[in-house]
C-alpha cells in the first residue's frame, strides 16, 4: 500500500517549513444571528498551516469546525478576522484550494472520469494534459478501471476516493477536508486513512482535515488543533512528530498512543454541551 517507489526518501519527522505558511487564519470570528439571539460559532481562531503540512482540527460537534473550513474555502464569510492563502488575502472561492466534503457530492449523471474533470470543465481548462492528470489521479486513488462507472455503481469509499481525486485535479496548494470519511464504516475508514497518508506522500499539499476520529487525526497529522464548543475556540495545538511516511504499524507504538491519550484528555476537559449526543464518537 505504501508507494515508496514514487515518494522519494522517507524522512523522519515533518517536512521543513519553507518561507511563508500556505494558510494563515487570523483572529477569525463568526457569529450567526438568529431569532433566539446571536450564536458565536467561532471566536478569535488563529492558526497557520505551513507548506505541505498536514493539520487536523478536532472538537465536539457544533464547535464550528465546518464553519471554519468553509471560511477558509471562501464559501462563508468571517464576521471578523482574515484568511491568507499563499500570501494573499482570501476573499472568495479560489482555484488553489481543493475541498472534500463529508459526502462525496458527485454528479450522479457523470462517470468517475467526468466527475474528476469537473473543476477543469467549470474552469474552462479542459485539455489533453488535464485528462492525463485526471487519469493519473484516478490511478493514484486506486480507481483504475472504474473511469466509466457512474457514482451509484460505486461503494461509499470509492465515491469518496473520486471526490479526493477531483479535489486534487487543479493542483491546489491547499486541501480542505470536512470529515471526509465520517460516513464510512470503521473498516473502510481505516483503509481510507492509510490511503490518504499515501496520497499525501505523493501529492504534498497543505491539508486541513476536520475529523472527530482521534486516531485518524494522530495517524495523519503533523499538528492537531483541538477546539472547544460555543464559542468555538482553539484549546491547544498538539504537534505529532511521528516518523513519515506513516505505516499501519505506527498505531501500535507508544508515541502514537500517547498522542491519542493527550488529545482525548483535552477533549474530555472541553466536552460537548449537554444535550449534544455525539460524545460517544470519541470513545472509539
Amino acid at each position: 500500500m505504501v508507494n515508496s517507489a514514487k515518494s522519494t526518501i522517507s524522512r523522519p519527522g515533518a517536512p521543513p517549513d519553507a518561507g511563508e505558511p500556505t494558510l494563515v487564519c487570523e483572529q477569525v470570528t463568526r457569529t450567526f444571528e438568529s431569532k433566539r439571539g446571536t450564536v458565536t460559532a467561532l471566536d478569535g481562531v488563529s492558526m497557520t498551516v505551513g507548506r505541505e503540512r498536514f493539520v487536523s482540527v478536532v472538537g465536539p460537534s457544533g464547535c464550528g469546525k465546518t464553519t471554519l473550513l468553509m471560511i477558509m474555502a471562501g464559501l462563508e464569510r468571517a464576521s471578523r478576522g482574515s484568511i491568507r492563502i499563499g500570501g494573499q488575502e482570501s476573499t472568495g472561492p479560489r482555484d488553489d484550494v481543493g475541498i472534500v466534503f463529508q459526502s462525496p457530492v458527485l454528479l450522479p449523471w457523470k462517470n468517475v472520469l467526468q466527475n474528476v474533470l469537473l473543476p477543469a470543465k467549470i474552469g474552462k481548462r479542459l485539455s489533453p494534459e488535464m485528462r492525463e492528470r485526471a487519469q493519473e489521479l484516478i490511478e493514484m486513488v486506486g480507481l483504475a478501471g472504474f473511469e466509466k462507472y457512474l457514482p451509484h455503481e460505486l461503494s461509499g469509499g470509492m465515491q469518496q476516493r473520486t471526490a479526493i481525486a477531483r479535489s486534487l485535479l487543479l493542483r491546489p496548494s491547499t486541501l480542505l477536508m470536512d470529515e471526509p470519511f465520517g460516513a464510512l464504516d470503521a473498516m473502510t475508514r481505516e483503509r481510507m486513512n492509510m490511503e490518504l497518508a499515501r496520497i499525501w506522500e505523493v501529492e504534498r499539499k497543505a491539508v486541513v482535515l476536520v475529523t472527530h476520529d482521534i486516531s485518524e487525526a494522530v495517524l495523519l497529522s503533523d499538528q492537531i488543533v483541538v477546539m472547544s464548543p460555543r464559542p468555538g475556540r482553539i484549546v491547544k495545538t498538539i504537534t505529532v512528530d511521528l516518523d513519515r511516511p506513516r505505516t499501519p504499524s505506527v498505531v501500535d507504538t507508544a508515541d502514537f498512543r500517547d498522542r491519542v491519550a493527550q488529545v482525548r484528555d483535552l477533549l474530555k476537559e472541553h466536552p460537548a454541551e449537554p444535550g449534544r449526543t455525539d460524545k460517544k464518537e470519541y470513545l472509539r
Binding site: A73, R94, D95, L107, L118, K121
Partner: peptide
C-alpha cells in the same frame, strides 16, 4: 446545498450552475 457549495467553490457561473447542475 452541498452541491451548490461545490459549484460555488469552483467559481461556476450562473449559466454553468444551471446547465451542469440544476437542469440535470
Amino acid at each position: 446545498d452541498t452541491y451548490l457549495r461545490l459549484f460555488r467553490g469552483m467559481s461556476a457561473s450562473r449559466w454553468q450552475m444551471l446547465s451542469q447542475l440544476r437542469l440535470p
